[in-house]
Each structure stands twice: as structure tokens, then as C-alpha cells.
């Protein structure tokens, strides 16, 4: 059994079924990517893992514990933290306040201060703008802030939903570098991306989702060469 094990999960929005018997696993230390088009169920999967959506069938097991009854806010304390699609930073709160909020479940204030310094080291632009309101940052900086905010609780598993969305190519590279660095410090990463090229470059393994279930999976380097993936998600330029 994997560290995080999703098996046979269905998720419904009212009568519409978004996930159909979804099964996959993530092991400690990996970067795993979920690829797929709009509506394939990628964000649904992350929101299900964050407890915001509940499976109507199937199980999610995290380090041996069934997550069915764990409320979403307690998942953070268990080490599962999501960086949501569209960043969702607190726009009228200062950069530093955003980071402090990321440490909401950490009771040791010294530890929070240490981790904020660590985030500032990793992303010096945030330090420069620490007293600015989050909403005044550029898109790339906001994405960094969203990742930084999630790091303050020292997640074991970081869920990233479309971190490259709306960013210029150079900024995509920078954000991906940061994700690599975060992974190097021991955080396991599950990343959902439409930008398959960028995601496959940093991932160890990947799953391809279509209409709510896995249709392809394997090491990222192999999937990057798979003609089906190339045709559907990478293009031929």
C-alpha cells in the first residue's frame, strides 16, 4: 500500500459524477503529477483529498489512516495541505499576515517565525514585499505566496492545483524550480497541471485522468515520450 492510497473513489456534484472509481497512490518523497484536460477531475481529486468534497464510494488512506471522517481543517494538522487553484491568497492582508495564517495550526510561534524566514530565503521577492497587501503582488508572486503560505505548516504532502496557470513562461520555470526545492527538503508533492510539459519535467511519476478515472500511468520520463500523451497533452512543436 502506498503512503497515500486512493482506491475506487467516486465523487458526485449533485447528480453529476466527477470521479469514477479513481485509484492511484503517492509514495513518500515523490513528485507525482495528475494530467488531464478540463473536466477530467483533477481539481476534484485535490479537493476530495483536502476533505472539501467527500467520496460517495471508495476510500482514501493516508499513512494507514482512513480519511473518510477527518474534517477538512484537521487534514492540515495531519500534514496534507493544498495550494488551491487561482492561488486564493488573502488579498487585503499583508504578505506576512498571509504567511502567518498558513501557520494557523502551528502553536509554537518561534517555529512559525523560523519557517517564515525559510520561505523568505527561498523566495526573496516575498521578503521585499512582506508589508504589502497580497492583492498588490503580480501573478507569479501571488503563486509564490500561496506556496509559501502552505509551507508554514510544514506539510508532508503538498497538493498543488495548477500552479502555472496564467503565468509567463519564465515565471512558470521559477515556480517549478521552487516546487523542486520544496520537494528536495523532504516534502512529497502531488501536482495537478494542464501544462503537462512543465509538470512532466519535474515529476517522478504521472497519472493521466480522463472523465474521472486513470487511463495511463507511469514514470514521467516514459509518459513524456508516450505517443498518446504527446498527441493529447504535449503537442508536436
Amino acid at each position: 500500500m502506498s503512503w497515500l492510497e486512493v482506491s475506487g473513489v467516486d465523487v458526485h456534484y449533485g447528480r453529476i459524477q466527477a470521479l469514477r472509481g479513481l485509484s492511484f497512490g503517492v509514495d513518500q518523497g515523490e513528485i507525482v503529477s495528475l494530467l488531464g484536460n478540463n473536466g477530467a477531475g483533477k481539481s476534484t481529486t485535490l479537493n476530495m483529498l483536502s476533505g472539501i468534497l467527500r467520496p460517495t464510494a471508495g476510500t482514501v488512506t493516508w499513512q494507514g489512516e482512513d480519511l473518510a471522517k477527518v474534517p477538512p481543517h484537521d487534514l492540515v494538522a495531519r500534514g496534507i495541505v493544498q495550494v488551491p487553484e487561482g492561488r486564493r491568497i488573502f488579498s487585503t492582508m499583508k504578505v506576512e499576515e498571509n504567511l502567518l495564517l498558513g501557520g494557523y495550526r502551528v502553536s509554537n510561534t518561534k517555529l512559525i517565525a523560523q519557517r517564515i524566514d525559510m520561505v523568505y530565503d527561498m523566495m526573496p521577492r516575498l521578503k521585499e514585499r512582506r508589508n504589502q497587501e497580497g492583492g498588490t503582488l503580480s501573478g507569479g508572486e501571488q503563486q509564490m505566496l500561496a506556496i509559501g503560505r502552505a509551507l508554514i505548516s510544514e506539510p508532508q504532502l503538498l497538493l498543488l492545483d495548477e500552479p502555472s496557470m496564467g503565468l509567463a513562461p519564465l515565471m512558470v520555470r521559477e515556480v517549478m524550480n521552487i516546487i523542486n526545492q520544496v520537494n528536495a527538503t523532504g516534502t512529497t508533492v502531488l501536482i495537478v497541471e494542464q501544462n503537462a510539459k512543465a509538470a512532466l519535467r519535474i515529476a517522478n511519476r504521472a497519472y493521466v485522468l480522463e472523465t474521472g478515472s486513470v487511463t495511463l500511468s507511469g514514470p514521467a520520463s516514459e509518459l513524456a515520450k508516450d505517443p498518446r500523451v504527446v498527441e493529447a497533452y504535449l503537442g508536436t512543436d
Binding site: S50, I52, P71, P72, H73, D74, L75, V76, A77, V81, Q82, P84, R88, I89, F90, S91, T92, M93, L101, G102, Y104, R105, R149, A150, S153
Partner: peptide
């Protein structure tokens, strides 16, 4: 500001 994002940060809304 954002109920969902607060939940994701571990706040019991």
C-alpha cells in the same frame, strides 16, 4: 475574505 482558503489553511470555519 475567503472561506474556502481559510479551511485549507486549517481554520475551523
Amino acid at each position: 475574505l475567503d472561506q474556502r482558503a481559510s479551511t485549507l489553511m486549517g481554520v475551523d470555519v
